[in-house]
């Protein structure tokens, strides 16, 4: 009986170690903003409630953001954004699921600045498209990771129709600023 207990004890001590061996970072207050520039009008909006998890061991990265959480300067723009373009009642979230290359879990333990490449599937307006972007990760003294990236998204790629005569650019600049903390 005592012989049989030994592997049991071994596994119970190993189990948590296996789970926490992964170097995971997360946030619930990520900032995602976008900028549309036309000769007539500039439109910008920001969301401070993006959630993201980054697994430094595997390089896997995920994002999710609620469309209704984007704040505009003008209330009417916000309503049109939700009602006419993003149809947030039907597609409440935009998500990203992909991989980060150019940095290792070991490197992220040391303060410094790292240039990374991110690639994966970007789902906006219910339409998933492969996307790639360059970004930077800055590790601070407290072990937090500030990740940022700017990239362009074509509205037509995600089935978002903009009628003629409307001051919305065909291509939108998206900026991501994340203050990752260890999970």
């Amino acid at each position: 009986m005592t012989m049989n207990l030994r592997p049991f004890l071994l596994f119970t001590t190993l189990l948590p170690a296996l789970v926490f061996a992964q170097e995971r970072y997360a946030t619930r207050t990520g900032e995602i903003s976008f900028f549309s520039k036309t000769s007539m009008e500039n439109i910008e909006a920001v969301n401070h409630k993006a959630t993201s998890v980054f697994d430094a061991t595997t390089g896997a990265m995920e994002f999710a953001v609620l469309i209704k959480g984007f704040e505009f300067e003008k209330a009417l723009m916000q309503e049109h954004f939700n009602e006419n373009y993003m149809e947030s009642g039907t597609f409440p979230k935009s998500t990203f699921k992909g991989k980060v290359e150019g940095v290792t879990a070991e490197q992220l333990k040391v303060p410094g600045k790292y240039e990374v490449n991110v690639s994966g599937d970007l789902t906006i307006h219910g339409v998933a498209k492969p996307a790639t972007a360059k970004g930077t990760m800055v590790v601070d003294a407290t072990g937090g990771v500030q990740a940022s990236s700017d990239f362009m998204v074509k509205l037509a790629d995600h089935g978002i129709k903009v009628p003629g005569g409307v001051n919305v650019a065909e291509e939108i600049q998206i900026s991501v600023r994340i203050d990752y903390r260890k999970m």
Binding site: N4, P7, F8, F11, L18, R24, T51, V53, D55, M61
Partner: peptide, 27 residues
Amino acid sequence: MRSSFLFLPVLLAVPALAQDDLLGLLG
């Protein structure tokens, strides 16, 4: 021996869980 065999599937499940749904970890 019997108890170690029982834990094998649990161990296999852990890495699978870790890769699938990262955001799920946030609750």
